[in-house]
Design a protein around this nucleic acid. Sequence first.
DNA 1: GATGTCGTACTCGGATAGCGGCTGTCCGAGTAGGCGCGG
DNA 2: CCGCGCCTACTCGGACAGCCGCTATCCGAGTACGACATC
Lengths: 158, 158
Amino acid sequence: MRLSQGVEWALHCCVSLTQAAEPVPAARLAELHGVPTAYLAKQLQALSRAGVIHSIPGQMGGYVLTQPPSAITALQIVVAIEGDVPVFQCTEIRQNGPLGVDPAKCSKRCAIARAMATAEHAWREALAEISIADLVAGIDADSSNTAIDGLRRWLATG
Amino acid sequence: MRLSQGVEWALHCCVSLTQAAEPVPAARLAELHGVPTAYLAKQLQALSRAGVIHSIPGQMGGYVLTQPPSAITALQIVVAIEGDVPVFQCTEIRQNGPLGVDPAKCSKRCAIARAMATAEHAWREALAEISIADLVAGIDADSSNTAIDGLRRWLATG
DNA sequence: GATGTCGTACTCGGATAGCGGCTGTCCGAGTAGGCGCGG
DNA sequence: CCGCGCCTACTCGGACAGCCGCTATCCGAGTACGACATC
């Protein structure tokens, strides 16, 4: 099991967008991160559909965050890219075989599915606790406040 | 992102094995759960390699748990089937592009990777808290103690 | 009757095809800005 | 000098191939049990 690579790109792009004063085109974000433009555009479209970022067409267009960085969570981004399907999908094999239980008596979810859902919930809770602002602060601390400043300058010098 | 279907099968098989007094062949477990025998055998091999179950060849052979149900965790089973690769794999795109940081200065992991790892750790912690014995107890409670008893009887009547 | 040997049937284990989803790419629709023309 | 219309260039958005990993399957290696012949 592996998270799509687009999740990493999307997280980095959202962090970058926090430092932009104007809309940033997909091509520029791709150049910044050294990734294929066309494929990154696909991920940005997913973020746009999920409402995390807003797209502006035409000249001087690009992408902008729709909310302040502290209001956007890593969970929103993961869900936007991966979809909101559960990681563990119960196929109800308890209803199969010679001892299969009556489907009519399956009002409660399978105990195994419940347990796995609990663990998955813990993961999602942790992701929801991570905001883009937190990530920016973390990067800032790591680089002694140089990385974010450099990013802002690079984005300003069109 | 989706967990392999084998995880669900492996969990159900481990629960079933807790009620067996003798080794259970893969074919019998497949019949019990109504799944393809050959593919289930593949998952059982993975569990065997991980040391969760022990295989006994020859007539009257099959699979047995290597530890008491309370000592086997859902995390062990997930790792056995999926491998212990992290869900979020950082490709270090912070080193790419015009603002790429010097690889020599990347002693600390990327702040984004750290945050994602924290969330993943919460998931693994939750999975480690789930034992096979817990799952058996949950199923037992759901069915008013009929499902587990029926399972034990079915396994006994070769 | 006890024992050693052989044969058989059953088990697991790894190696082999097939398909869906992520990866990577392209071109068309739509829009904002800039320029030129007319008033 | 101001306003309007057209054009261009740039942007996003969805539709189209390619490859890797999960899904599904098969056959061979190895072992324990049972039967048989022998002592």
